[in-house]
Design a protein around this nucleic acid. Structure first.
Lengths: 258, 258
DNA sequence: GTTGTGAACGTATCAGATATGTGTGAAAGT
DNA sequence: ACTTTCACACATATCTGATACGTTCACAAC
């Protein structure tokens, strides 16, 4: 009989089956599995609430503290949304865990930026192929809207924002949510590098019109449903962007800067 | 002055600057940021230990409970390794968070499997390009070794294992750790689907030799450093695999099965 | 009908214990 | 001298019992 103390009676209820509890693991791990079961196999839809910490603790025969640790774990994994005063809610699928991973990778070693750029290139090129094949009419409209916003942008920051949106809409047009999440997850961590890329772009003696042309070519090919041309246009655009970033990294000012 | 209770004195030490604590956020959030700072900006290398929970609690003027919640969060993000009886250690970079994300996505909705396959295709094709361009001699040797292991495999399970290893070695040969992590992270969640894909493959009237041929073509192109051919060979292989999987999903037996 | 308000509930956090795993150095045995 | 054993200091895992404060909702007051 493993660690029991005080008046912790085991008779929490009449017929509790002990099968679902692995005694080799920690109680918190058991709580995590229990919560996962509630989320995945229970009939809880995203946004719906779990029992309160106290109820969960009573159900599982552990203290509230242990429940809290399990809840924290699943919150960090993006499966639960915890807000003070409210019961824990099943989270809508979201890219936060991915975002955290990429951000952490960059903070650990800024050189990972170039690796991330490669990942992005691979994903976006494929997303463009899929978008040309499957994009719905509304998705196309959103894409065109984002393109127009880019064209009307005046300052660097709003241009960047519109650029991010264009790429996000393109990913969304692919119809593949996993790809969308991955690309979205890279946006935040790579925000800084975008501005740098832009500076490197200018340093290479290229203009904003070049960038707009590249995007125009992508948009046109997607609109014409020419998957091969669209993918190629995106690849060329991203290769240029990669060169822009390298140009910035080679700049005298941008050398030692993390 | 926000919630203070009991004898919680604020004079934890002489000159503590309160700037690093956002009073708008929860204490746990502050702890998380503090720990992140230790991990990223401190001089702690992976494998090294943080102060004990008690010490951290004293340093930050919070209870051990609050520290524990923060530690749990970072553990779930793959940044800390916690083992009973030992102080928390900085984790080596690892793909666990990605793996958790993909696994959760699949458990939430098995239809995400086809989306994951697309992601895998995009990443592996690009990884193959990079591998053909940059693979070191030792990486090539590992790849050949994995290929030989595949050829000698007798049963389904060991073949699959060798197959996974081949693709992992190829990703490693790309020299891009981020891509490696992503592909590695998909291995576990997609393990089941691999077996199904294999069954679908046979159901389509194709043989194991076909699979070996596809891999042989990839290996040969990478060895000859023909990036375009290598990428194309990988794409064809993965398109076949995708069709295998679809074939399985269309099988009478494999229809309702999650 | 609208608006305020308080009780009920829920989480956030603290304090203080106990149980048990880990590592270390001293004591014991060879 | 070398190894093994064991006790002890330390660290985490978990429990109990409180307090503080955010959320919600029903009900009363206007």
């Amino acid at each position: 009989m493993p660690h029991r103390q005080g008046i912790m009676v085991d008779t929490s209820r009449g017929g509790r089956d002990a099968e679902s509890e692995q005694s080799g693991e920690s109680r918190t791990a058991n709580v995590v599995r229990h919560l996962e079961a509630l989320i995945f196999d229970g009939d809880l839809q995203p946004g719906q609430f779990l029992p309160s910490e106290g109820e969960l603790a009573a159900e599982m025969g552990v203290s509230r503290l242990t429940v809290r640790e399990g809840v924290r774990t699943l919150e960090a994994r993006g499966l639960l949304e915890v807000r003070r005063g409210r019961r824990p809610a099943v989270a809508h699928p979201n890219a936060a865990p991915l975002s955290g991973f990429f951000a952490a990778s960059l903070r650990r070693d800024p050189r990972n930026l170039l690796e991330l750029v490669e990942v992005r290139l691979a994903l976006e090129v494929h997303a463009t192929t899929l978008a040309a094949q499957h994009a719905t009419r509304t998705a196309l409209t959103s894409l065109e809207l984002a393109f127009d916003t880019m064209r009307q942008a005046t300052d660097e920051e709003s241009f960047n924002q519109a650029d991010v949106r264009f790429h996000a809409m393109l990913a969304a047009a692919s119809g593949n949510q996993m790809i969308s999440f991955l690309i979205e997850a890279m946006d935040e961590p790579m925000h800084e590098s975008r501005l740098r890329s832009l500076r490197g772009h200018l340093a290479r003696g290229r203009s904003m019109d070049d960038i707009m042309d590249e995007h125009a070519r992508i948009l046109a090919a997607v609109r014409e449903r020419d998957a091969r041309a669209a993918a190629e246009a995106m690849r060329e655009h991203l290769v240029q962007t990669r060169m822009d970033l390298r140009a910035f990294l080679a700049l005298p000012t941008g050398d030692g800067q993390g």
